Amino acid sequence: MNTQTITAALNAVREQKPLVLNITNYVVMNNTANGLLAIGASPIMAHSRDELAEMMAFSGALVVNIGTPDRIWIERMLFAVELANFHCKPVVLDPVGCGASSLRTETSRRIAETANCLIIRGNASEIIALAGAGAGAETAANNKGVDALDASEAAVEAARYLVRHYGSSVVISGEADIIVTKDGEIRLYNGHVMMPFVTGMGCTLSALTGAFAAVGDTTGLAAAAVLGVAGEIAAEQSAGPGSLQLNLLDALYRLDAETLMRRLKLTPSN
C-alpha cells in the first residue's frame, strides 16, 4: 500500500461514512466515538446481546476492545465475532493488557481464534503476550497493566507468528508503528512522544482501524498513518496531554490528503 492508497482510503471513509460497531471498555468509549466521528465514520457502542445480531448485519466492521473484561462482556464479544464472521465483516481485536492477567490473555486468544477476517492492534508487550510460546516468547511479557514496556521492534517476530497462526494483519503501536502482514512489514515514524500520556490513544487507533477496514483496508496501515500524522499536528499546538486530546480531534477532522502525504514517514520492508 503506497501513500496514494492511504489517501484514497481516507477519502473513502469520509465518503462512505461506515458504521463501526464497538464493544469497548468504559474508559475510552467517549474518546473512540469522537475519534471516529472526527475522521468521518459513524460509531455505535453496542453491548446488549439482544441487539447485536441486528446491528452487525448493517455495520461495516466490528471492533472488540477487552480493556474492562468480565464474564458477561466476554461472552458478548465472542457472540459478536461469530456474527461478524457470518456477515463477512472484518474484526479488529485490541487485546488491552494482554499478558497482565490470564483472563486477558486467554480472552484475547479465544477472540483471535474465532475471527475469520482479523486485524490485531496492540502495543509491543500485548503482541508478545498474545503470541506467547508460539513465537518463542514468554507468556508474561514486559507488561505493566496496559502500558508497554517493550519497544515495537521487540514484537516483530511475535507479530509474524500471529499473522501466520491467525491469518491476520498486526499493527504494533509504539515509537514506531509497525504493520505486519503476510506480504511484509511497513514502519511508520509519525506520532509524538506526548501521545502515550493520553489514555485510550491506542484504543482510538483500534477504532479508526475498524473504520478503514470497513472500506477495504484490512492491513491497519491507513489508520496508523492518519492517527500518527494527526497526532504530530495536534502536538505542535498543545501544551500538554489535556490540550493534545482536544487538538487531536480537530487535526483528524481537518486532515487532508496533501498534508497526509507531505508529513507521512513510511518505510516498507519485505
Rank of each mutant, 00 (worst) to 15 (best):
Phe86Pro: 03
Gly136Asp: 07
Leu130His: 10
Ala84Asp: 10
Glu157Lys: 00
Thr105Ala: 08
Cys88Val: 06
Ala155Met: 13
Glu82Val: 09
Leu149Arg: 06
Ala115Arg: 15
Glu113Asn: 13
Ala141Phe: 00
Glu106Thr: 14
Met77Glu: 13
Asn85Lys: 15
Phe86Ala: 05
Leu83Thr: 08
Thr114Ile: 02
Asp147Pro: 13
Ala155Ile: 09
Asn116Leu: 15
Ala112Trp: 09
Ile111Arg: 07
Ala129Val: 00
Asp177Met: 03
Ile119Gly: 04
Ala129Arg: 00
Ser168His: 08
Ala80Arg: 14
Ala151Thr: 09
Asn85Phe: 05
Cys98Phe: 11
Gly99Tyr: 01
Ser152Gly: 07
Gly99Glu: 01
Leu130Pro: 04
Asn85Cys: 05
Ala129Met: 01
Val170Gln: 08
Cys88Asn: 09
Phe86Asn: 01
Gly174Ala: 06
Asp94Pro: 04
Ser125Leu: 12
Ala158Arg: 05
Glu138Asn: 13
Ala135Cys: 14
Val171Asn: 05
His165Asp: 06
His165Tyr: 00
Tyr161Glu: 06
Ala115Val: 15
Glu126His: 11
Ile74Pro: 09
Glu175Ile: 08
Val92Glu: 12
Arg121His: 03
Cys98Lys: 05
Glu126Trp: 12
Asp147Glu: 14
Ala148Leu: 00
Ala80Gly: 04
Gly122Pro: 02
Ala137Gln: 10
Ala158Phe: 07
Glu113His: 11
Leu83Arg: 09
Arg104Ile: 06
Ile120Tyr: 14
Leu103Pro: 12
Val92Lys: 07
Leu118Arg: 04
Thr107Asp: 12
Ala154Gly: 10
Phe79Glu: 06
Val96Tyr: 01
Ala159Phe: 09
